[in-house]
C-alpha cells in the first residue's frame, strides 16, 4: 500500500515527466523559464491549481455525470485559476505581473485536464493529491532545469544573483524565444541519452 502511494508520487518525476517525456503544457514552460524565480512562481501556481482541482474532483467523482464530465472539469479548474488570480493580485502582485497571461492560461494546460480525466476522476482523494503533487514536482523540475540554463547563459545570474564579474558577457539569445526552444531540445536529448544508458545498465544486470 505504502509502496503504491510512493509510486504514484514518484512516477511524475522522471518516468512520466509531464514536460520532458509526455511533452505537455509546453507553452508556459517555454515562456516563463527566462529566470529561475519566474519558474518557481509558475510551479507554485501550477501546484495550487492541479492539487486543489484533483482533490475536488476526486471528492465529488461520484456526482459527475459521464456526459458532462469535461465541462464540469473545466468549470472547476477555471474556478481555482480565478481564485489563484485573486490571491496573486492581493498578495504577490509582482509575480502576477511577471507571469502575466500565463496565469489564466493554466486553465487550458493539457497536463491538468489530462491528469483529472485519467486519474482523479477515478481514484480516491489521497491518491489524487499525491498524484497532483508528484506531477507538479515533475513539472517544477523540468521548468527549473530549463530556467537555470537560460538564466545562467542569458543573464549570467541565478535567482537574480550575478555569478560572474562584470567582464562576463551573457549570450542574450538564451533569454529570447529561440533560447527556450534550444535549451529544452538539448535537455530532452540529454535526458533520452541518460535514460538509454540507465536502462541498458538495468537490463545487463
Amino acid at each position: 500500500m505504502k509502496n503504491n502511494l510512493l509510486k504514484i508520487f514518484t512516477k511524475g518525476l522522471f518516468i512520466e515527466n509531464p514536460v520532458f517525456i509526455l511533452m505537455l503544457g509546453l507553452c508556459s514552460v517555454l515562456a516563463v523559464s527566462v529566470s529561475v524565480i519566474n519558474a518557481l512562481g509558475m510551479t507554485l501556481a501550477f501546484t495550487f491549481v492541479i492539487v486543489l482541482s484533483e482533490l475536488t474532483i476526486s471528492l465529488i467523482r461520484n456526482w459527475i455525470p459521464k456526459t458532462l464530465r469535461i465541462p464540469i472539469f473545466i468549470v472547476i479548474i477555471a474556478s481555482f485559476v480565478t481564485i489563484l488570480q485573486f490571491l496573486l493580485q492581493a498578495y504577490l502582485p509582482a509575480l502576477n505581473k511577471s507571469l502575466g497571461i500565463f496565469i489564466p492560461l493554466i486553465v487550458v494546460n493539457c497536463i491538468i485536464i489530462g491528469r483529472i480525466e485519467s486519474f482523479a476522476s477515478k481514484r480516491p482523494v489521497v491518491e489524487s493529491i499525491l498524484d497532483g503533487l508528484g506531477i507538479s514536482l515533475g513539472y517544477g523540475i523540468a521548468i527549473v532545469l530549463i530556467a537555470v540554463v537560460r538564466e545562467i547563459l542569458g543573464s549570467g545570474s541565478i535567482l537574480g544573483i550575478q555569478l560572474f564579474g562584470s567582464s562576463f558577457q551573457p549570450a542574450l539569445m538564451f533569454i529570447l524565444p529561440p533560447g527556450a526552444f534550444l535549451v529544452i531540445g538539448i535537455e530532452i536529448g540529454a535526458l533520452n541519452a541518460f535514460m538509454k544508458k540507465y536502462n541498458k545498465k538495468v537490463c545487463s544486470r
Binding site: A171, L172, M173, F174, P178
Partner: peptide
C-alpha cells in the same frame, strides 16, 4: 544571427 542576437553591442 546568434552573435547578433546574443552580443548586439559588439
Amino acid at each position: 544571427a546568434f552573435m547578433v542576437l546574443s552580443f548586439p553591442v559588439y
